[in-house]
Design a protein around this nucleic acid. Structure first.
Lengths: 173, 173
DNA sequence: CATCGATTTCAGTTTTTATTGAAAATCAAA
DNA sequence: TTTGATTTTCAATAAAAACTGAAATCGATG
């Protein structure tokens, strides 16, 4: 019977659609989030044409976002013997997804902020007025905090799942 | 002499501009990030007209983004006796900024994701095929992880600075 | 080295988001 | 109340981001 298959299709469509909407709220483009959702819940790798068909999007769009997901290391491309097409599969282990995202966001969001703060602190360190010193102090505090955050992100990104659970238990217990 | 004042103005402009650019990369609108940067480095609260002047933006834009920052609780409005205008000042304590952002992002990003995952898990829990069970399992694992993240966000958001430093030392040491 | 399926690029278009500026609403003081 | 300063809203516009579709490129195979 096919009720189960229909129900699954419905549930997956729901997930893909909703995940896309969430992505938008997080500043991630909708298509990229949808493809990620689709691949995370696909038992088999999918071709570009598969993805185009499933999400009703153009080739260019599918291509760009698949490559972007590969750049994030959330998706890898696989080749099948005797098939010239490229297939894509998503990492499904949630802890690995998390550490990957942590690493990538550190690189894309935290590190550049650190650069800005360091330069601004440097630039303001010998402005010898009360306002200048206050500005310098603020830069320093932001810098220190972001350095701390960078450090944490590195630690977390390199944690093994087991250790993280253990630490969480200690922290949450 | 005025070299110090010029240098400070230059450094602040640098910071405001760069912070705005970073904001864009993080999916935050540029004006909002710029206003935040400006207020974080202003010794005195600023009026809407102040902000318009400083960033060369329209009244509507300044107004909207100031209110948005107030909604995020990163900025509060203050009244000065004998002055009808509204002034705005930013929270400057980096730890408070962090906990505020953590709380707000949990509410805006994590909680909605949890809703989606719970519904999708619910909807798929009795699809009695291998594919259906795999889908359900994936939803469950994502849900569990996001619940864990929500929990962590709550803990972190309610931490006192001192405790956080202590914990960090333990974690990083 | 010519063919053909597949991938990549990109100019043009659509959609979404941000911004302006002026009109409307608010509100304290005269 | 009326006045005038201030805040708020919002239709119009501008800017940015996402998407399309087709042409160009690539690369394995005969």
């Amino acid at each position: 019977m096919n009720a189960a298959s229909d129900k699954l299709k419905h549930a997956r469509d729901e997930f893909v659609g909703q995940w896309g909407a969430l992505g938008t709220q997080w500043g991630i483009n909708r298509t990229m989030a949808q493809i990620h959702a689709l691949l995370m819940t696909s038992p088999e790798p999918r071709s570009t044409d598969d993805v185009m068909e499933e999400l009703q999007i153009s080739r260019g769009n599918a291509h760009t976002n698949l490559k972007e997901l590969v750049a994030w290391a959330l998706v890898r491309s696989v080749v099948r013997k005797g098939d010239r097409r490229e297939y894509f599969e998503a990492e499904k282990d949630v802890w690995k997804i998390f550490t990957t995202v942590a690493r990538e966001r550190k690189r894309r969001e935290i590190d550049p902020a650190l650069g800005v703060l360091r330069r601004c602190a440097e630039e303001s360190q010998d402005i010898d007025t009360p306002e200048g010193r206050a500005f310098y102090e603020q830069m320093r505090q932001l810098q220190e905090f972001v350095e701390f955050a960078a450090n944490m992100a590195d630690r977390v990104a390199s944690m093994k799942h087991g250790f993280a659970v253990q630490m969480a238990a200690r922290l949450l217990g």
